[in-house]
């Protein structure tokens, strides 16, 4: 039956396009006169813009370097009142070297949604971040893990290496991303505009988003 619908839909499409020349489509003919980035920025300016835009959408932005990263993570976990946290398999163990008194779950694909619902915090890296929109992209690489990890716990700590993981704009981000992996694009914590078309933060996704920017080339 679905074969019939398939053939009929394609027949209708072809009939409907009777006015169009039946040539092989060439998407390169689409005019793309828009900009690939909306400003020329130094790496510092780019990271600064990312931090501003993340903050604008109520993410908490923290600055540190690789050496101080474990301390920063430990402090954020304490401040949040975290009792248990989960990390994907590719997160370096030294990230948690300053953390004590918290139960750490190492996910190897076995934690269920119900189990994750009892875990306070997830700590991950990211694929890249986009300055102009204040967006972090996760691509399920080993330091980010399964999508469920960054969804069910109510607190997400995401670590971004600057300037290497920061791009200016969407047109600059897409070539770096592999669509065959499931991707999650995050711009601030969960929010809704469904009540009187005004934005409020905090619905189903993590309600607290801590972003740690690592600056190692700072003088």
């Amino acid at each position: 039956m679905t074969t019939t619908s398939r053939d009929e839909i394609l027949r209708r499409v072809r009939q409907a396009l009777g006015d169009q020349p039946g040539t092989t489509p060439d998407p390169t003919t689409i005019p793309r006169t828009y900009q690939t980035t909306h400003a020329t920025r130094t790496p510092e300016q780019r990271t600064h813009l990312l931090a501003d835009n993340l903050t604008d959408y109520r993410a908490h932005v923290h600055h540190t370097d690789t050496t101080a990263l474990p301390t920063t993570i430990a402090r954020l976990l304490t401040d949040h009142g975290t009792r248990s946290a989960v990390i994907p398999p590719g997160v370096p163990t030294d990230w948690l070297s300053a953390t004590t008194g918290i139960h750490i779950h190492h996910d190897h694909g076995e934690l269920t949604a119900h189990q994750l619902d009892t875990i306070d915090t997830v700590i991950t890296g990211c694929a890249l971040a986009i300055a102009e929109t204040g967006t972090i992209v996760l691509d399920t690489s080993p330091d980010q893990g399964r999508r469920i990890l960054t969804l069910v716990p109510d607190h997400h700590i995401c670590i971004i290496n600057t300037p290497t993981q920061v791009v200016d704009s969407l047109p600059q981000a897409l070539p770096h991303l592999d669509p065959t992996h499931p991707l999650t694009w995050i711009s601030g914590p969960s929010a809704t505009s469904d009540i009187e078309l005004d934005r409020v933060e905090g619905v189903h996704g993590p309600r607290t988003l801590d972003v740690i920017l690592i600056h190692d080339n700072r003088d």
Binding site: N53, T135, P182, S187, G205
Partner: peptide, 17 residues
Amino acid sequence: RMNPYTTTWTGTTLGDG
């Protein structure tokens, strides 16, 4: 500037989703 969450997926992924 950007909505809080965008999800993209392609077919199925073993062990995820």
